[in-house]
Amino acid sequence: MDLTFYKYQGTGNDFVVLDNREQNIQLSQEQVAFLCDRRKGIGADGLMLLQEKEGYDFEMVYYNADGRVGSMCGNGGRCLVAFAQFLGVVEDQAYFIASDGPHKAFLKDGLVHLQMKDVDEVEDLATATFMNTGSPHYVKQVEALQDLDVFQEGRAIRYSGRFKAEGTNVNFVEHLSENKLFVRTYERGVEDETFSCGTGVTACALAASRAGYKSPVHIQVLGGELQVSFEQEGQSFRNVFLIGPALQVFKGEISL
């Protein structure tokens, strides 16, 4: 099977993207993992299919780098919106369905504004916060984040007793001045640190609001800068938007 693919990245979180509107692409777990392999395949943090879906502009189907079907990916969603615009499926607004439900998005001044799911439950743990922003996220505040071994520390939490079976993404956040955070994330499915995690920075911004951070929160990640805007209603969050760039890197062909 010959595939035409596109490579997209959003603040260093990179994806193999395929146009599957004709429903002619069927990939096994092993094939997805091969395509995402950085030494033997194309290389990516995940793979996405853009598909037609009645009632929506398109459907987002997301796979983790290990080849398994993944939960919602915020940066992936932003990249797929940019891809849909590139294909002419949408203009400057989109309404699509993903694994965690419907999403709205719009493109403005070179940035993709992606509406994330509402968050009604925030769990306080002994030394961290846990919530689901489309994917499960463990958020821990630390000092001197640049020097932290995110792979080892994140892996230890991801495979700890509570999270081992289903896994969790693990975010380490350093509070900076002027309503800004520095975030590094260990992602399940990739099983490594990534340059950016959209649902992760969303969780970090919402957690920081409880420490007095105001919308929009600015987030520095290894791959660039993102923003998260939201409305807080008691312990719940509404109109949550993940905002940042989404760029096409290249187009290619590969044989499976």
Score class of each variant (00 low, 15 high):
E191M: 07
F34R: 14
P245H: 09
L125M: 14
N171D: 10
E30T: 12
T4G: 08
Q93I: 07
G110H: 11
S71A: 14
V221Y: 02
D19G: 06
G252M: 11
T4C: 11
L256I: 13
V90G: 01
K117R: 15
T4Q: 14
K117I: 13
F237L: 08
G101C: 10
A211V: 10
A98K: 03
Y8E: 02
E193P: 02
G223Q: 07
Q232E: 13
T194I: 05
G76C: 08
G154A: 11
T11A: 15
R158K: 15
F230L: 08
Q235Y: 09
V61N: 00
F237C: 04
A94D: 01
T129P: 00
P136E: 10
A128C: 08
E59V: 06
L222I: 11
Q146D: 14
D124W: 09
A128M: 06
G88M: 10
V90T: 05
Q235E: 14
N75Y: 05
L107H: 01
R238C: 08
K117V: 14
G212Y: 11
D57W: 04
L111C: 10
G70L: 04
F195L: 15
L114Y: 00
G223T: 06
G77Q: 03
G43E: 07
L145H: 03
A203D: 00
G134Q: 04
Q115E: 15
S215F: 06
D14L: 07
G161S: 12
S215Q: 07
V249F: 10
A126E: 14
T194Y: 05
R158I: 03
C36G: 05
A98S: 15
I97H: 11
P245C: 12
V228T: 04
A203R: 00
V139D: 00
S71D: 12
D2A: 10
R38T: 10
H103W: 06
N24L: 12
Y213D: 04
Y62N: 04
L145W: 02
L3M: 11
G12C: 09
G55F: 07
R184E: 03
D92T: 13
A165L: 12
L47D: 02
G101W: 08
L176F: 10
L49G: 02
Y63F: 15
P216M: 08
S71G: 10
F34H: 13
E187M: 06
I219M: 11
A105V: 05
K251L: 11
H103S: 08
Q248R: 15
F241A: 00
M72F: 13
A105N: 05
D147E: 15
L80S: 01
E233A: 14
S160H: 09
V150E: 07
N20H: 09
M48K: 03
